[in-house]
Amino acid sequence: MEQKKQQTSFFPNQIAMGSFAPHSTLVEVGCFRTGDVRDALKAEDLMPVRKDIQVLCHEMTHWFDFFGTTWGREYIVDICRAYRALERGTETEFPKILKLFDIDRSVLSPLYYRFTSAPSVAHTAARPW
């Protein structure tokens, strides 16, 4: 839900037809008209619902890339390591979380999805993360 709120605040005139969220592995196709697709399958005429099916196939392609490629499998491992590091909550685990942040920034467009700024006070041994 939070991701959806952020999308509408950054792009108020845009709607997401579909999405794949790698950290949760959820595929969402908001424009999919289940009843219309069911009727089109029965009528053996998919032309009226081709957009629904195209969006679903597009998002499933992301899902398959994530689970079916070497890169995707390595990304899954990094996500799991970061979540475990977060659960442990120790400063020595922080680089695993930071690595996932960097991987996410390399996958997504940092100008649209991530904002960075210098810390107000520098981190030191006396002032850890």
Results as ranks from 00 to 15, higher is better:
R81K: 15
G18I: 10
C31N: 05
A85Y: 07
F11N: 14
Y75C: 11
F10W: 11
T8N: 07
I15L: 09
Y83L: 14
S24H: 05
G68R: 07
H58E: 14
P12N: 09
S19M: 12
H62L: 04
E93Y: 10
R73S: 07
M47I: 03
R50W: 06
G72L: 08
V77D: 14
R38T: 06
R88W: 08
Y83N: 11
L26Q: 14
G35C: 02
E44H: 11
T69K: 03
G18V: 07
M17D: 11
M60D: 01
P12H: 09
L26V: 12
M17S: 09
R73P: 00
T70W: 02
D78E: 13
T69F: 05
R88L: 13
M17K: 09
D52L: 01
F32Q: 05
D78C: 07
D45Y: 01
V55K: 01
T61K: 08
T92Q: 15
L46P: 05
L56I: 01
A40Q: 04
G35L: 12
R73G: 01
P22N: 02
A16K: 10
F67N: 10
A85D: 09
T8Y: 08
W71D: 01
R88K: 14
R50G: 00
A16V: 10
P48M: 07
Y75F: 15
D45Q: 08
I79S: 00
I15M: 09
T90S: 12
Q6A: 09
W63R: 06
T25W: 05
A16L: 14
Q7S: 03
Y83D: 10
L41D: 02
